[in-house]
Design a protein around this nucleic acid. Structure first.
Length: 268
DNA sequence: ATGGTTGGCCCCCAA
């Protein structure tokens, strides 16, 4: 008997402000597992009944005051994976991992919020850029030592790796999110055993975005987007890849995030 | 043309 598992990732940019939009996400994307980034809520202030209201009663959060914050909400039981690196020694709530109990073998879920990296693509002039590159290198090294199996890795990775993951490749080569140091670093991390599950479905010559800046008057007309949000699966799950959705309409939801949800369905 | 908007928080920071 074939079962499906649908995983969604969304940088929600404040879970307390936008929690009502998650009802629409459940209708449109119907995820079994929902991974959020930039929740901006310390764990005691994460809406306590949100998971049960969405039909995702198993909730794990890792939040802090003001910035960052990640969460996993799941229809399936979750077991927190505690033994994970403290990335860059900052304890800054950018990653949470869990095993989702599928009834057969569990599926491991990693939810990442990679540092945005500031404006200047130079690690001497801009420590935030160095932090981003160091985070990527640590993640690569971790998965090199711990090859992923039955693993789904999602999140706002804050890097648009391919030429058609940005609205203008040449113009953005010097813009943080698309510099060669970042895209090669992300490639090397992914090559530790992952497949880019969304590009598996979408040819590389097609433009594909998940984020449009708030600073454009009409995001759809200017369409200066970037693909910053990703879903990867370990290579053993390639044969399970079933379908995907980019919920671009979410960019027009009332008081929406500047990111839109990305959804993947696996046949497990 | 180096703009523009948003959220959280303590009047500025990060994105």
């Amino acid at each position: 008997m074939t079962k499906t598992l649908t995983v969604a990732t969304w940088n929600i940019n404040s879970v307390r402000l936008r929690q009502d939009l998650l009802t629409t996400l459940m209708t449109d994307g119907a995820p079994d597992i929902l991974c959020l980034q930039e929740t901006k809520a310390p764990d005691p202030l994460f809406p306590s009944d949100l998971g049960s209201r969405l039909g995702l009663p198993h909730v794990l959060t890792r939040g802090m005051k003001g910035y960052n914050g990640v969460a996993i909400l799941s229809r399936l039981e979750l077991q927190l994976i505690e033994a994970m690196p403290d990335w860059c020694g900052k304890s800054d709530c950018r990653h949470i991992a869990a095993n989702a109990l599928t009834g057969d073998h569990p599926i491991t879920v990693h939810n990442f919020y990679i540092p945005a990296g500031g404006d200047i693509p130079d690690r001497e002039a801009n420590p935030k850029y160095g932090h981003k590159l160091d985070f990527i290198a640590e993640a690569k090294a971790h998965f090199a030592s711990n090859p992923p199996m039955r693993t789904v890795l999602v999140g706002d990775l804050n890097i648009a790796p391919l030429e058609n993951d940005v609205w203008n490749h040449r113009q953005l080569l010097g813009v943080v999110s698309h510099t060669p140091a970042e895209t090669s670093g992300l490639d090397e991390w992914r090559e530790q055993g992952f497949i880019d599950a969304i590009r598996y479905f979408v040819p590389h010559d097609q433009k594909l975005y998940t984020w449009w800046s708030y600073r454009n008057r009409d995001w759809r007309a200017s369409n200066r987007g970037r693909r910053l949000d990703h879903i990867w699966v370990s290579r053993d799950l390639e044969t399970c890849l079933s379908r995907h959705r980019i919920l671009s309409d979410a960019r027009d939801w009332p008081r929406g995030s500047d990111h839109v949800p990305v959804v993947l369905t696996l046949a497990i």
